[in-house]
Design a binder for these strands. Structure first.
Lengths: 164, 164
DNA sequence: GGGCAATTGTTGTCGTCAACAACAATCTTT
DNA sequence: AAAGATTGTTGTTGACGACAACAATTGCCC
């Protein structure tokens, strides 16, 4: 249906000069509505900003939180394993871990079995910090719930469960 | 529930050295499952990549497509109006339009009413190109449908309709 | 009607992030 | 032992969001 709409000639309203649309932005999105990617992108931006705002006091961003969570749940993982599990590049994970190690949340321990790799662990400080972060993340999740509705959020999680 | 899970001590499996997990990555995500933001981010990455791949031959990225679509549906808009409608910064839109204008898809016409602003229009070439892009975008949308299911996609669009 | 604030497009900087490429050190395979 | 693959690291490139500053222009206010 989107393809057929492409043949529709654009309605030339306000084609002379810049738009003078009172104030209510009644600007049509045309084919953009109906594109899952656009809706998801806008939603993702919203969720990202709310997360950053809610976890702003502890200065933890979404990616950092995901790294800490995975290490906390699976101590001893290699950087490669973490990167693959979270779908981030190992090159990028290096900087993330540099930062988290500098803040004393994470330790890189040289593996005896494979001297190329590092076993990743949370420090004691990292454990207690992560517990706090999880509380704030739960607060953020409640914000999401308030934004789109309780059962909508659950349905969304169900639909996208395959991507985690 | 996510908050209570934070108190659960991490099970120390494979804590000596780097992980030796056969091959099937059975790495727990712990609290990450249940976070809408994480699922949405992963899904957004997938959708983004599929869009870029499907529209790869015509070298159109999602943001460019959204700009062309809005201009095509609302000829004469100012840059400010387009930027506000799509939630991108006007500073960023400048470069986007530079590129699209260079490729002869878009024209910046100096407005007579407000000599500060430009009225944005598609060129004839831009119109036919956009029609082609819409066809490819529809193909991409079918990929999404194949990935998450027809009614799941529709439900997703309904849930996130407020963000467009 | 004159002056001041706001708006528009533009340029620039900074930091995040994905995608590569190259490299040394270290396994693994043959 | 030699060749090839993997792991962590460094660096580059380009898209992107967030700001800040600026000139030109418009709108508002007194």
């Amino acid at each position: 249906m989107t393809a057929t709409a492409a043949r529709t000639p654009p309605r030339k309203r306000a084609s002379n000069g810049a738009a003078r649309r009172s104030e209510a932005d009644e600007i049509g999105l045309d084919a953009l509505v109906g594109h899952a990617g656009y809706a998801v992108r806008r939603f993702q931006i919203w969720i990202f900003q709310d997360f950053v705002r809610t976890l702003g006091d502890v200065e933890i961003r979404p990616t950092q939180y995901s790294v800490l969570t995975v290490i906390g749940a699976n101590p001893g993982l290699s950087q490669m394993a973490v990167a693959k599990r979270l779908g981030i590049e190992r090159a990028r994970l290096v900087h993330l871990l540099d930062s988290l190690e500098q803040r004393k949340y994470v330790k890189r321990i040289k593996s005896k079995e494979d001297r190329r790799s590092h076993a990743l662990h949370l420090t004691a400080q990292g454990e207690t910090a992560l517990a706090k972060f999880k509380g704030l993340a739960a607060e953020h999740e409640r914000n999401v719930e308030a934004k789109i509705g309780k059962e909508n959020r659950e349905q969304l999680l169900r639909i996208l469960a395959g991507f985690t």
